[in-house]
């Protein structure tokens, strides 16, 4: 029984949060990795693109809520998501036209594009703050839990509860659907194949008559969709605060690099590696240890690192991977 309790506590406080956080990171890292694969630079504005997408969706959600529309147990934000994606796609396409295209045509060094993306980051961040402000916004509605801790306890008779938040479940389901669609698109459709060809060998792709501007445009639209979905899921699961998205930049880049920049499978794996390590290392294992070794009365929280150091975890993993396997777990290669 104690073993079961320990497993349930572990699942409730480590596995479930890590799975949903990992899905959010994976979606974010997919966006970063696609920009890297096709446009060949590290996009520092990605966190703020996510914030913009989430903001656009929140505005749509508020409008729908004001109209009295709701999805019952599901959050209304799902209905507003297409509009949010469209708004974000418009923003990134406009940025590409006004900013990035100039440097692409001149074949500027990647590091120049990184600095340019820093400028875009500033502007996007300013836009988000300008429209919605810096405060925390809550926009989650619908059912909060699929099963609450108390229901679980009554159901199983265990002392530990397993609470499944509906947003966490939603995150995982949406992430699986999005990733499946993405891989189907990249591997099965003509456009997807031309994108992979472009990422593999630009010159060869150009010779075979692939239109680079079209590839770039579709990449941006897909990145906008990925960023918006990741941003909205993160906002639903935790809460929306513009600055938090900026801070996601480090774990997202760590996920993409750990998996291998430019490799979509790697981005997903990296997201989960980072999320699981972050949550496991910063979790206080006192409760779990108490069930497993009843005789042992730990003095502290049995926590390897305090939660404030979660950045240090993604960073440490990043450094280890860079030192021992600089191309990432999945051999960063073309998309």
């Amino acid at each position: 029984m104690d073993l079961l309790n320990a497993i349930v506590a572990f699942a409730n406080f480590v596995v479930l949060p890590a799975v949903s956080y990992g899905s959010q990171l994976a979606l974010g890292a997919l966006g970063v990795t696609m920009i890297y694969g096709i446009l060949r630079f590290s996009n520092f504005a990605h966190g703020d693109t996510m914030a913009f997408g989430a903001m656009a969706t929140i505005l749509g959600t508020w409008w729908l809520q004001a109209m009295g529309v709701s999805l019952g147990p599901f959050p209304t934000a799902l209905l507003a998501l297409p509009a949010g994606i469209a708004g974000t796609a418009a923003l990134v396409l406009l940025t590409d036209r006004l900013v990035y295209r100039f440097y692409r045509e001149r074949k500027s060094a990647p590091v120049i594009l990184v600095i340019v993306s820093m400028g875009v980051m500033f502007v996007t961040n300013g836009l988000v703050r300008f429209v919605i402000g810096v405060d925390e916004q809550r926009f989650a509605d619908g059912a909060r839990f699929i099963i609450t801790a108390r229901e679980f306890k009554e159901l199983t008779g265990l002392r530990e509860g397993l609470a499944i938040k509906s947003t966490a479940m939603l995150t995982v389901v949406v992430a699986i659907i999005v990733v499946a669609l993405l891989f189907w698109f990249l591997n099965r459709t003509r456009t997807g194949k031309s994108m992979r060809a472009f990422s593999d060998n630009e010159d060869l792709a150009l010779l075979s008559g692939i239109n680079p501007e079209r590839v770039v445009m579709i990449t941006w639209i897909m990145v906008a969709a990925l960023a918006t979905i990741a941003g909205v899921l993160y906002g639903l699961d935790k809460s929306f605060k513009p600055f938090n998205y900026f801070q996601l930049l480090l774990p997202i880049f760590a996920s993409a690099i750990v998996g291998g920049l430019g490799n979509p499978v790697g981005a997903i794996a990296g997201g989960f590696v980072i999320a699981f390590s972050e949550v496991t290392i910063t979790y206080a294992f006192k409760k779990v240890a108490g069930y497993l070794i009843p005789a042992w009365e730990p003095q502290g929280l049995v926590q390897l690192l305090s939660t404030d150091y979660k950045f240090a975890v993604s960073f440490a993993i990043l450094i280890v991977v860079l030192l021992f396997r600089p191309t990432g777990l999945f051999r960063g290669k073309a998309l």
Partner: peptide, 28 residues
């Protein structure tokens, strides 16, 4: 020592990470 000699964006990410960790240390 750890990040130089790798690609330029890796140094960027490494420095970004170190600065966040230094701030976390000062805060905690």
């Amino acid at each position: 020592k750890t990040a130089l000699g790798l690609r330029s964006d890796y140094l960027a990410i490494a420095t970004l990470g170190v600065s966040e960790i230094i701030i976390a240390v000062l805060k905690n």
